[in-house]
Simulated assay, not measured.
Amino acid sequence: MSVVVVTYNSEKTIEETLSSLARQTYPTDSYELIVVDGGSTDDTEAIVEEYDAAFHVVDGGTIGACRNHGIDVSSGEYIAFTDSDCAVPATWLDSHVERIESPNDDIEGQDDVTIAGVGGPNRPFPTDPWFSKLVGSLQGTVFGSGGSPQSYAIGEVRLVRSVAACNVMYDAAIFDSHRYDDAVNVGEDAEFHFRLSEAGYRFVFDPAIAVSHHLSSTFGAYCKKSRSYGYAMARIQRRHGKVIRWYSALPSLALGGGMLAVLADLAARKARYVPLLLAAFLLVSGYGTAQVYRDRRSPTALLVPIMLAAQYTYYGIGFLEGLAAPDPVSQDLP
């Protein structure tokens, strides 16, 4: 068994990650811990040295390149990944191994695919700021996550096409013929898992195997991350020349549609289309607000319409920037 943690300038969070991995119920002598660093300039390495972990540096490496290096130096039959801003429960490895070796016979479609691995959701830390928890609750709604299983509150074990790389265990055999793309940074797991799904692989998603994950703690960070996700998804889809996630272009289309609606109403000097769009948004955001309030039981749920508007706007802008970028593979979000 190999556990790989990819990191970059994570001195504030990586100790939580390594400490949680050191407390596993899985036998200590049965797994190796590997930290792959993209070239940190802070005290990340000094913190890692306090733990029984192999430390490797891929200076200037993308997340995809760092994950591949971790795979290259791993020796386990299974390879698990989590990130340096996460903490895993004590039963994390045991739960993954049990699920990957004994998937439910009742999972629909299991006999028709090859299982690449097992994954689960990621949730905010209990000690995180209220805004991070609000982001986590919003991502637990279909409009906040687009239905991605790693965030959206799926309550049953089932097959999915992709899981988050901060909470996944692979059968190492798949890496004999499939790897992450060294050129892809943000969205490297979505790109890799898309190729796996095209090759007939699926993941078993188990909602009970959750990790704690530090989510955006400020509104500015939330907007920036939304933009980077949109940018990355456009680059990936340009590269493959096909739609990876059908909903990825919707925010950009909504932005364009909104601008056209405003221009049409101004030209006609009559409010016809804009009120309809506003009514549709209020319906969507109202549903999301109700879901978040049911989860949080807090008046902060009233911020959901603003957060959704910001998320869709920044994701849509990032997506358009990704489509317009001259190099969809190597250029980073400015």
Rank of each mutant, 00 (worst) to 15 (best):
Y152Q: 07
S197F: 00
V36C: 07
S162T: 05
L303P: 01
D37E: 09
P121N: 08
S217E: 14
S162K: 01
M259I: 09
A280S: 11
P326H: 07
L255S: 05
E16D: 13
S216G: 14
S137C: 12
S177K: 10
D182E: 09
G38N: 05
D52W: 05
P27H: 11
F219H: 13
D295W: 01
G120Y: 01
A325R: 03
P299H: 09
C66D: 04
F219L: 10
L266G: 04
L138E: 02
Y287T: 12
G117I: 02
S30M: 05
G109W: 06
V97G: 05
P328W: 06
G144Y: 01
R179N: 13
R179A: 12
R23G: 12
R23S: 13
I14H: 06
E77M: 12
I154F: 02
H240W: 11
L250N: 05
L323F: 03
G140D: 04
V184H: 02
S212R: 11
R269D: 00
A190R: 02
G144L: 03
T289A: 12
Y231P: 01
I244V: 15
R123N: 14
A249K: 02
V142Q: 09
F175K: 03
Q311E: 10
A173D: 11
R99K: 07
A208D: 13
V58I: 15
S75H: 14
S197V: 01
L282S: 08
S212Q: 12
G38M: 08
A80K: 00
L159D: 02
I115N: 03
G288S: 14
D112P: 00
F81M: 13
A221Q: 12
A80V: 12
V292P: 01
